[in-house]
């Protein structure tokens, strides 16, 4: 087990390093640089000003030197400094990360729970009307552009009905603390997390349904039935347990997509997460921030995959037997 973990850790480190180098090269290929953007924003762009900024950022050094500087800092866990935001990148990301995690994890749980429950129901009522209704709804959500669904949700629930806040993470500067603040955040969280969750729900519905039906046909289920166990017990203890494996695999794969989807959702809902941070950093060529966000989100995905693997080991009876 320890060897397994160590091996994975080394692999994760190598992948992160490769991602960093690739992105570093890509980002530096983009036209414009942060000095120009900052000069532009300041409406103050005499060559000396821009040269000073470039020197300050180290952009006047050869590309290879810049890359080496970044990577050697990166190796010690230092993500660099955002000159535009005047603060260390790690601080900036840590500031925004909780919001993204809250959004992604809520959306993930919503999609997983709704998806698995709906999938189990659909499988149990195979061929009946409720089965096709569930499948159709799931497919519709899957085919709907995420940003469009978000816009329509805001139009309906915030503007027309006034039930939900249209944007934001919390009521700004409300001085709320403790439970009141948590409820406030939860209220703001509903629309974005449900919209993001519904999009991913569809795949869980389909996978769960298909997987349940397949496991139902396996011999051990027949044996269990023959032994006279109650159908509900069979479904819960035996079928679902085995049918969940592909769902776990899928969940691991979704981690990356959740972060990507968060970019869109965070933009529409003004959610102060790292997705938005990334988009802003990209537009202002805030290299270090952009690299930092990529590294952190890749690390998150890798961690998610690691968790998936562990879950797999715990859930899969065959692997446990070994």
């Amino acid at each position: 087990m320890l060897r397994f973990i160590l091996g994975r850790m080394v692999k994760i480190a190598l992948i992160l390093l490769a991602i960093t180098i690739l992105n570093f090269c890509l980002i530096h290929m983009a036209p414009g640089d942060p000095a120009l953007v900052m000069a532009g924003e300041a409406g103050d762009a005499d060559p000396k000003f821009i040269e000073d900024l470039r020197a300050q950022f180290g952009l006047d050094k050869p590309f290879i030197v810049q890359l080496w500087t970044y990577v050697s800092h990166f190796a010690t866990g230092d993500l660099g400094f955002s000159y535009r935001q005047q603060m260390p990148v790690s601080e900036l990301i840590l500031d925004r990360l909780p919001a993204t995690l809250l959004l992604s994890i809520s959306a993930f749980l919503i999609s997983l729970i709704l998806g698995v429950v709906a999938g189990v129901i659909a499988a149990a009522r195979q061929g009946k009307a409720s089965d096709s209704i569930i499948s159709t709804i799931a497919l519709l959500f899957y085919a709907t552009p995420l940003f469009w669904m978000a816009l329509m949700a805001v139009l309906l629930f915030s503007v027309q009905l006034g039930w939900m806040p249209a944007f934001g993470y919390e009521t700004a500067a409300s001085d709320m603390t403790g439970l009141a603040r948590m409820l406030d955040i939860a209220h703001h969280l509903i629309l974005p997390s449900v919209v993001l969750g519904l999009f991913f729900m569809a795949t869980y519905v389909r996978i769960t349904r298909a997987s349940m039906l397949e496991v139902n046909r396996l011999d051990f289920v027949k044996t269990a039935r023959a032994k006279g166990l109650k159908p509900s017990v069979i479904q819960r203890r035996h079928v679902l347990r085995n049918a969940i494996l592909p769902v776990v695999t899928l969940a691991g794969l979704h981690a990356g997509q959740l972060v990507g989807g968060a970019v869109l959702i965070e933009t529409v809902f003004a959610w102060p997460g790292i997705g938005r941070l990334m988009f802003e950093a990209l537009q202002s060529r805030d290299y270090n921030v952009l690299l930092g966000v990529f590294t952190v989100s890749a690390a998150l995905v890798l961690m998610f995959n690691l968790i998936t693997d562990f879950t797999y080991r715990i859930v899969d009876p065959r692997i446990r037997l070994k």
Binding site: L151, V154, S158, A166, F167, G168, V268, A270, E280
Partner: peptide, 14 residues
């Protein structure tokens, strides 16, 4: 800080 123009309009309306 509201990065989206439509959301800023909504913020004002509410």
């Amino acid at each position: 800080v509201v990065p989206d123009a439509a959301s800023r309009a909504t913020a004002f309306e509410t």
